[in-house]
Simulated scan of single mutants.
Amino acid sequence: MTELDEIERRGRAQGRAQGRVQGRAQMLLELLTARFGALPAEVSARILAADEATLVTWTTRVITAPTPEDVLGDDAPRASSPARRPPARKRARRT
């Protein structure tokens, strides 16, 4: 493998990694929006600036966190505070 081939291989690997991070960020934004409605700009900005490991942690928290801010919290949800569930959404009627 030539030096040029190695540089090209590394560039492709970096591109794939960046694509994974962008895909995870987009999925998290979609999940949060579906669960909590429109998101504050600060929440979106934090998600778009996060690394992959952080996005994985936050995506898992979407399941149980009572607010978007709790999803992005620095520590796991506290057991001492009762979890609040968002109001149930009405299902669309099928016609």
Score class of each variant (00 low, 15 high):
Thr64Leu: 06
Arg91Ser: 11
Pro82Ile: 12
Ala34Arg: 15
Gly11Phe: 09
Phe36Met: 02
Ala17Ser: 07
Thr33Gly: 08
Arg91Leu: 11
Asp70Ala: 13
Val71Trp: 04
Leu72Thr: 00
Pro82Asp: 12
Leu31Ile: 01
Gly37Asp: 05
Gln26Arg: 10
Ser81His: 13
Ala65Glu: 04
Ala79His: 04
Gly11Leu: 05
Leu28Trp: 00
Asp5Cys: 07
Pro68Asp: 00
Gly37Phe: 03
Arg9Gly: 01
Arg35Tyr: 05
Arg91Trp: 06
Arg84Glu: 12
Ala53Trp: 05
Arg12Gln: 07
Thr59Trp: 00
Ala65Gln: 04
Ala38Asn: 15
Arg12Ser: 01
Arg20Ile: 10
Leu29Ala: 10
Arg16Asn: 04
Ala65Leu: 05
Pro40Lys: 13
Ala83Asn: 06
Thr54Met: 10
Ile7Phe: 08
Val56Ala: 14
Glu30Ser: 14
Arg85Gln: 15
Ala34Glu: 15
Arg9Trp: 05
Leu72Cys: 00
Thr2Lys: 11
Phe36Ile: 01
Glu52Pro: 02
Ala25Arg: 01
Ala13Asn: 06
Gly19Ile: 02
Arg89Trp: 07
Asp5Met: 09
Leu31Asn: 09
Ile47His: 01
Leu4Gln: 12
Thr2Ile: 11
Arg10Pro: 01
Ser80Lys: 14
Thr57Arg: 15
Ala38Phe: 07
Val71Leu: 02
Glu6Asn: 01
Asp51Ala: 14
Thr95Leu: 10
Arg78Val: 03
Leu72Ser: 02
Pro77Thr: 03
Thr60Phe: 14
Glu6Ile: 05
Arg35Gln: 09
Thr59Ala: 11
Arg85Trp: 08
Glu42Gly: 09
Val62Tyr: 00
Ala49Arg: 08
Ala49Cys: 06
Lys90Ala: 12
Leu55Cys: 05
Met1Trp: 07
Ala79Gly: 01
Val56Cys: 06
Gly37Ala: 02
Gln18Pro: 06
Ala49Leu: 10
Arg61Phe: 03
Gln18Val: 07
Ile63Pro: 04
Met27Val: 12
Leu55Asp: 01
Gln18Ser: 09
Met1Thr: 07
Ser81Val: 12
Lys90His: 14
Asp51Ile: 03
Glu3Asn: 09
Ile47Tyr: 00
Pro66Tyr: 02
Val21Gly: 08
Phe36Cys: 02
Leu29Ile: 07
